[in-house]
């Protein structure tokens, strides 16, 4: 009797851990399978706080010409998004190419965007703290592709850590989608396109 009881006790003891593990895994998979949490939707003119940047998307258009000094190769067209960027960090920086991430469009693969300043045609400008500048993001796509009627873009923000775990330096980490902007493809502003 004593031996049998001891056996049961041992079995119970060894079983508890795995039971908890299986239960936790089940709970996680049940919650993980649900729909992804909805992101905040924005339209043109909304200021969006995204980590390093305060970004205000203005308009989007499809271009087949040189736009603000960004040249297209033959057989290319460009999806252009105009936005105001304000540097919220302590120092001048040019880290903004991962800020806007277009939603997947059927049949179109996108490369990294070219960013140009509107004030004078300068690609990849350095933006200074607290001095908002208007820039354009240009994504090249094949001229044969048909762009959709509107442009949906995820805004990706990072979080500031005063001390990182590796070097003990401050930095921006953990990119996450903080909002989604939908802009109709419209007409370019006057003076944006300068022939090809």
């Amino acid at each position: 009797m004593r031996i049998a009881f001891g056996k049961i006790k041992t079995r119970l003891a060894t079983g508890i851990g795995s039971t908890v593990a299986v239960g936790a895994a089940a709970v996680y998979s049940v919650f993980g399978a649900g729909p992804p949490p909805s992101v905040t939707q924005y339209t043109a003119g909304n200021a969006i706080e995204a980590g390093r940047w305060l970004v205000t998307p203005q308009r989007a258009w499809v271009s087949r010409q040189r736009v603000y000094g960004v040249t297209l190769r033959p057989g290319q067209q460009a999806l252009v998004l105009e936005a105001d960027l304000s540097n919220r960090t302590q120092a001048s920086t040019g880290v903004y190419s991962d800020l806007l991430r277009p939603a997947t469009m059927p049949g179109i693969t996108l490369e990294d965007p070219v960013v140009a300043q509107v004030r004078d045609p300068k690609t990849a400008p350095l933006l200074h703290p607290g001095m908002p500048e208007r820039v354009i993001y240009v994504w090249m796509i094949p001229a044969s592709a048909t762009p959709p009627a509107s442009f949906t873009v995820d805004v990706v923000g990072e979080t500031f850590k005063p001390v990182d775990n590796l070097f003990g330096t401050p930095g921006w980490f953990n990119p996450a989608v903080v909002g989604q902007v939908t802009l109709p493809f419209g007409q370019p502003p006057a003076g944006a396109e300068q022939g090809s």
């Binding site: 302590q90 120092a91 001048s92 300043q117 004078d120 300068k122 350095l126 703290p129």
Partner: peptide
């Protein structure tokens, strides 16, 4: 070279004068 303001904002050399 950088211009560091009274609150510690650091303005790097302008890159618009290429």
């Amino acid at each position: 070279a950088s211009w560091v303001g009274p609150q510690g904002f650091q303005y790097l050399l302008s890159d618009r004068l290429a």
